[in-house]
Amino acid sequence: MNRILRRSLHSSRAVSQKLTSTSQSEMNHFNSLASSWWDINGPQRILHKMNLLRMDFIQDTVRNNLKLNTTKDEEIYVPGYSLDILPVGIKERIVQDQEFKKDQLLSETKFNVLDVGCGGGILSETISRLPFVNKVTGIDLSVDVLEAAKLHMEKDPILAEKLQYKLSAIEDLPKTDKFDIITMFEVLEHVDYPSKVLLEGLKRLENGGWLFLSTINRDLISWFTTIFMGEHILKIVPIGTHTLEKYINQIEIKNWLEKEPERKSNYKVVDTKGCIYIPAYGWKFTNCPDIGNYFMAIRKM
């Protein structure tokens, strides 16, 4: 177990390989999935379904953390207590005002986004379509999957002006490239040095920028749901997608962030949510981020 922990987060020794690089077997696995990546009824259906929840998580986090009143003169009412104790009519009005202001703020926003481990571009495409996103760069190390991503973006002409893909590891991007949103969905459990990758991401955040990630807690339940049921019994995830040793507990990421004073003062975990796949329904948020899959939002303060 100690060895695993060292691998996952505590290891900081320099490596000769690409930090984001994965083993050859991981690479072969994803290359073979390239052709069916966008078949929503194919092997990646569950990933397509999960993407809906990712988008909800990003939207909700960004919206709920907008600063509604920047100067003293503005008067969007944000009470210091729960809105639920107010009468329904009053509550509705306040929420309406707040939502209107959020829409207004977002309409003036133009975020630059980096999608790390974009794969076939499922998230890159959806995040490109958001009105407050200006430009999206999707990077991945699998040639075939990137090719599938590039082919697929031609199916929607509005993507061409917002979205580009690059065959690149995150550490090879210029340090000066900064982003408002960096996403690492289902990435950390596939790379050899997750702490390095995470650090490279954090370094590239604009002030106030967001790093969204999702991965899987390393526990028996995760093994049961993602590997035993998902890959072998229900066969809704291609066999060989997951390796239990590579899973990372959410508390490990939090501890890692707080380990160094500089990291602790610059970055904050704003939200963590568990999620679960229910067959015939889809993905659903849970209140327990310590079990199974989870999403995390880290903000640069």
Partner: peptide
């Protein structure tokens, strides 16, 4: 809101 292509069966 989820940035989907509205023609998608999803």
């Amino acid at each position: 809101q989820r940035g989907m292509d509205i023609g998608s069966p999803l």
